[in-house]
């Protein structure tokens, strides 16, 4: 048996205690065997030492031996510990993905009462400064930061399951507002529709078509704008898609105005 100083003995006891804690519940590793291995290693290191082994000497050997965690086989590390480990030591791009998803989950937990339908009101929650909104916004920002680190969408792999939900919670309402605001907000309050409310729907469709042409024009000039707003979902958006948006807008105008005109003429003829 080697002779350890008091502080060295405490240090070894602490190390072995940590090893036992990590090995708790481990099926394939015998904690007693690991303890014997550690002690045998230390005894071999200090074989023939004349004086009691000091704390510093033992600590140096334990440092070389490595963290108590390493005695647990990788396949036996519980999932939650793997997540913590990945957060603490894993590469940045995985860490950010986990943080983003964590904040996203917290945003639901802090909601009173839980606002599970927040997908349609997330911008309202954010703008009104609720705790849920703040966590949603934070998870969105971290997701976007993770995207910057990962750079290439094809390299996202399993991280997409962590990053996409917070992104979609913001993107979907933003897309609805961006593309559909004329239908959401447009109130036809002029003399024509007051007299003829049946024309309102057609004019609303035409107004949206006009807006899509404007959007298509803007995105045709700067397709990177849409790619930037809806990263990574719009990464493949190019001029071709912007032109398609303008064509759809034109079709909507024709349908809206044509439909309204048809109703108008049918009604005036019948009168």
């Amino acid at each position: 048996m080697i002779n350890l100083s008091d502080s060295a003995k405490k240090c070894l006891d602490k190390y072995l205690q940590q090893v036992r804690t990590y090995l708790r519940g481990c099926k394939t590793v015998d904690a007693d065997e690991v303890e014997r291995n550690v002690i045998e290693h230390i005894e071999s290191e200090f074989e023939g030492a004349a004086a009691a082994v000091s704390f510093e000497e033992l600590d140096a050997v334990l440092q070389k031996l490595g963290s108590p965690k390493q005695w647990v086989p990788e396949e036996e590390i519980p999932w939650w510990r793997k997540i913590i480990l990945r957060l603490r030591t894993g590469p940045e791009d995985w860490r950010l993905a986990y943080i983003a998803f964590g904040l996203f989950i917290v945003s639901f937990l802090v909601a009173k009462p839980p606002t599970w339908f927040a997908i349609v009101v997330s911008p309202v929650l954010i703008l009104s400064g609720t705790a849920q909104g703040i966590f949603l916004l934070a998870s969105f920002c971290v997701s976007r930061a993770a995207l910057v680190v990962i750079a290439n969408r094809d390299e996202l792999g399993g991280r997409k399951w962590l990053i996409y939900p917070p992104l979609l919670f913001i993107y979907i309402p933003v897309a609805i507002v961006l593309f559909g605001w004329p239908t959401l907000l447009y109130k036809i309050n002029n003399s024509v529709t007051e007299q003829r409310p049946e024309l309102a729907e057609g004019l609303r469709v035409a107004a949206m078509g006009l807006w899509w042409i404007v959007l298509g024009l803007v995105f045709c000039i700067r397709p990177s704008l849409l790619r930037m707003i809806f990263r990574p979902f719009a990464d493949k958006f190019k001029h071709k898609e912007a032109v398609l948006l303008m064509i759809i807008g034109l079709v909507l105008i024709i349908l809206g105005i044509g439909g309204s005109a048809l109703i108008y003429f049918q009604q005036t003829q019948s009168q």
Binding site: V29, D30, E33, V34, N37, V38, E40, H41, S44, E45, K64, L65, G66, S67, Q70, W71, P73
Partner: peptide, 27 residues
């Protein structure tokens, strides 16, 4: 014995970062 194996592998530069990793592999 375990420590002898550690000592042998220790001489290969860059192979053994934590000497404790050898024991779980032996197990």
């Amino acid at each position: 014995y375990g420590y002898d194996i550690v000592r042998k592998l220790r001489n290969i530069r860059g192979l053994v970062i934590s000497e404790g990793t050898i024991y779980p592999i032996l197990s």
